[in-house]
Design a binder for these strands. Structure first.
Lengths: 151, 151
DNA sequence: CTAAAACATGACCATTTTTGTCATGTTCGG
DNA sequence: CCGAACATGACAAAAATGGTCATGTTTTAG
């Protein structure tokens, strides 16, 4: 019941891209250094992100990766599902009819509700918003720190 | 990002107990047959449930397991956490300060929000309610089926 | 007090998933 | 054609999952 490292790394990389002007190309090696992601692992993850059109990659000199669509249109859920596949909190929810208690079991209903809510929250903010808010928060913290050390 | 079989089995067993009058003793072998749970596996799970005081087990002739507290006071989250430990949707949430981006990363905030909501839903109904509602729903379905076959 | 019934404990194990690494290939620009 | 960058696929170590099994302990009926 937890996000995998793949998902975690994918979100980090996407947040990195989302903080830059749309179209900016970066190299996987650089992202991996800045966000503590094993480089070769990130390479594999980036292929999945590209398949989901979340990023576009370009080979060759001056190549790299860039966002495949504006950060305003991408959510954390998009990123996770690109890497981990569709989210199902409970195996009973994977496919109708798999669980013989499907029709009447109210635990099933509860899980369905939980899953909907989870997805709702994970799509409630765009990567653009998250990146921007993080930037602001970071600046606030730095300022606070400077004031303290100055005093 | 999914409930384990342990968790799933635990919930099934607890629902079984919750549908019976408080204090009713049942045998693990019977529960395992009725709910398609590998018997030896359920035995191990039941130890964990007992440690969390969700059930009480008694050895010896006429022994078995029974609820450790009224089904009205137990939630699905209780059961899951007894078996899987505390739920953390994201590794960053496990322990403050583990993630160096903790303080400013807004993805962190989003996960925290999601986790709270998930727990909220998984505690929104007692096992007693879930068992009762399932019973009702099952009866409704049966009746509907009889009407159809009669017509 | 003894036998049988029931759960407890802990060792063990197969499989799958996760989290990578690496060698090699491909594409592109200059 | 060279070097930079990503792609692909094989490989593998480690951890988690989902069990099984032998043995031990507790309880009670008789």
């Amino acid at each position: 019941m937890q996000l995998t490292m793949s998902g975690e790394y994918a979100v980090r990389a996407m947040i990195h891209l989302s903080a830059l002007p749309f179209g900016t190309v970066v190299q996987i090696a650089d992202v991996s250094k800045e966000w503590n992601i094993p480089e070769n692992f990130l390479r594999k993850i980036s292929v999945q992100l590209a398949r989901a059109d979340l990023i576009v990659s370009q080979r060759g000199l001056n190549g790299g990766i860039r966002l495949g669509q504006p950060a305003e249109r991408i959510t954390v859920l998009d990123v996770i599902e690109a890497v981990e596949g569709n989210i199902f909190l409970n195996k009973c929810l994977v496919c109708d009819g798999v669980c013989p208690r499907d029709e009447w079991c109210q635990v099933h209903t509860l899980w369905a509700e939980a899953q909907i809510k989870l997805k709702e929250i994970l799509t409630s903010k765009s990567l653009a918003q998250l990146a921007a808010e993080s930037f602001t928060r970071k600046a606030e913290l730095n300022e606070a720190r400077q004031r303290t050390s100055a005093a």
